[in-house]
Amino acid sequence: MESQWMYLLNFLVYLGVTLPLMAFGIFVFAFTTPYKEYELIKNGAETNDPQKMAAAKAAAHDLGGKMIGLAIVLASAIFHSVNLWDLVIWGVVGTVFQVIVFYLFELLTPFKVVSEIPKGNVSVGIFASRLSIAAGLLMAALISY
């Protein structure tokens, strides 16, 4: 029974480190994109304007994909980390590389993601979302190597 308490304590400690890492990642994502995801999402819910509604969907897909990609990286970091500092390092690395992937995507595409999402191009938001998830899966595998 005593060992169960140690597992619970370990769970709580890692959760206490992981949730702020996730919040940090979301903050970095929102800070590094020139459009304001939360504002676009909020404005899309408070209007009947089809463009604002589409922009909200595009931003939600984009931000949601980044969050899932980062969660995948953090899950791998939790599983493979040897201690809490290892988890923190890989969490920060994962966040930085998710931002780099976004801007590489911006650089390599024939359109500008940063202008298409606020215009309501949902397809670009979905594509950016899937790219973030794919990058998260790849980074998670790299952590385990």
Rank of each mutant, 00 (worst) to 15 (best):
Leu138Gln: 05
Leu63Phe: 12
Ile68Ala: 14
Glu106Gly: 03
Phe31Leu: 09
Met67Cys: 12
Glu2Ala: 14
Val113His: 04
Ala140Thr: 10
Val73Trp: 03
Phe24Val: 05
Ala75Ile: 09
Tyr145His: 13
Leu131Cys: 02
Gln4Phe: 10
Leu70Tyr: 07
Ala75Leu: 15
Phe24Ser: 01
Phe11Leu: 15
Lys119Arg: 14
Leu15Tyr: 06
Asp62His: 06
Leu142Phe: 14
Leu87Trp: 13
Val28Ser: 01
Pro110Asn: 15
Val82Ser: 11
Leu87Val: 14
Ala45Val: 13
Phe29Asn: 04
Val96Tyr: 00
Ala59Pro: 10
Val17Gly: 04
Thr32Asp: 00
Tyr103Met: 08
Ala55Thr: 03
Val88Gln: 09
Ile26Arg: 01
Val93Trp: 00
Gly125Asp: 00
Val13Thr: 06
Phe97Asn: 06
Ala59Leu: 05
Val93Phe: 01
Thr32Met: 07
Leu8Trp: 12
Leu19Gln: 00
Ala54His: 07
Phe11Asp: 14
Thr47Ala: 00
Ile68Met: 12
Tyr145Arg: 13
Tyr14Lys: 14
His61Ile: 08
Val93Ile: 13
Ile117Ser: 01
Leu131His: 01
Lys112Asp: 08
Ser76Trp: 05
Ile133Trp: 06
Gly69Arg: 04
Lys42Val: 15
Asn83Tyr: 09
Asn43Glu: 15
Leu63His: 09
His80Trp: 10
Ser81Ile: 13
Val13Phe: 03
Ser123Tyr: 10
Tyr14Glu: 14
Val93Thr: 00
Trp90Ile: 07
Met1Glu: 13
Lys66Gln: 14
Pro118Lys: 03
Ser76His: 08
Thr33Gln: 07
Thr18Val: 04
Leu84Glu: 11
Ala30Pro: 02
Leu107Ser: 14
Leu74Ala: 11
Ala54Asp: 08
Ala134Cys: 07
Gly25Phe: 03
Ala23Ile: 09
Ile72Phe: 02
Ala140Ile: 08
Thr18Cys: 03
Ala55Asn: 07
Val73Glu: 05
Leu104Arg: 07
Lys36Gly: 12
Thr47Val: 04
Arg130Asn: 13
Asn10Cys: 07
Ala55Phe: 02
Leu137His: 02
Thr32Pro: 00
Leu12Ser: 14
Leu84Lys: 10
Phe79Ile: 11
Ala55Glu: 00
Phe102Ile: 05
Phe102Asn: 12
Ala135Val: 01
Val88Asp: 09
Gln4Trp: 14
Ser123Cys: 04
Trp5Tyr: 10
Pro20Glu: 13
Glu116Gly: 07
Pro20Lys: 03
Ser132Glu: 05
Leu9Ala: 13
Ser129Gly: 10
Arg130Glu: 11
Val88Arg: 11
